[in-house]
Design a protein around this nucleic acid. Structure first.
Lengths: 132, 132
DNA sequence: TACACGTATGAACGGATGCTCATATGTTCA
DNA sequence: TGAACATATGAGCATCCGTTCATACGTGTA
């Protein structure tokens, strides 16, 4: 029987740097949760939904009309946005009106635009338009 | 031959709302670009890489040691981060030192944490630790 | 109570994503 | 120049994602 040792051998060059940074690192679970948050905005249709809801609350089929997708597709995306607590809704009869949970979503969206504005001029224009 | 008409039939309830919001909406291409930016942070290992680089510049194998992934996996992820202009590098001999492009990446990361901090207390602690 | 309508949900399918493994590139040093 | 090393890259594969389609749910109205 062969005992495999030296298998933990993660090679690094600067042990001190690795130790220093490791001490302040996110745990796997924490990194996953943060990644989930960004993943929520990592789809063009969800980006459009957030963008639309930054202006005013909208019902599902209006959202579908605005972003050019099927009601069903929008409903699926809204579930994800709800799960990640980016949007909330109120019911009025059989219609559900969706809106952004709070201003942090707005900020997150704009911070993304801010990054893009370094390479795309339309992003800078948008930020002005949206009041940044 | 059948002419399909009424196929543009996007049903909406509030025409005025749809018209108003549509006028301020991101184009498909713009939404895609923004989604790409968020997608860059939508993976736990990339989140960890950014987190690590917020403290100091690191070479590939040190990054691999810190986040607990293979050199190859980290190199693949760094390519994506480079392409999206979140990280840059300098060469010192055969070693490449990676670092964040600017403070916007830092802000984007923290804005994500800010959102999570509503439901997870560790996120709030992290923000304090990182000076927010 | 039955139907219409707005929305939600599950299955299923095609495409995207992230890993590993093998290999290539570029730099240092003997 | 050639070996050693740090990193990059491409192929292949398993998993994940976002859509459509069919169907279910819940509310108002006849």
């Amino acid at each position: 029987m062969v005992i495999e040792f030296d298998r933990c051998g993660i090679q690094c060059i600067h042990e001190d740097a690795v130790a220093e940074v490791s001490a302040k690192m996110l745990s796997g679970e924490e990194a996953l949760a943060l990644a989930e948050t960004f993943k929520t905005l990592a789809d063009p249709n969800r980006v459009k939904i957030i963008c639309a809801l930054m202006h005013r609350e909208l019902c599902v089929c209006d959202l579908a009309a605005v972003i050019g997708a099927s009601d069903s597709a929008v409903s699926h995306q809204l579930r994800m946005l709800r799960t990640q607590k980016l949007v909330k809704f109120r019911r009025d009869g059989k219609i559900l009106y969706y809106s952004l949970v709070d201003e942090h979503v707005d900020k997150l969206f704009k911070q993304g635009l801010e990054h893009i504005s370094h390479s795309k001029e339309w992003a800078a224009r948008f930020l002005e338009l949206y009041g940044y």
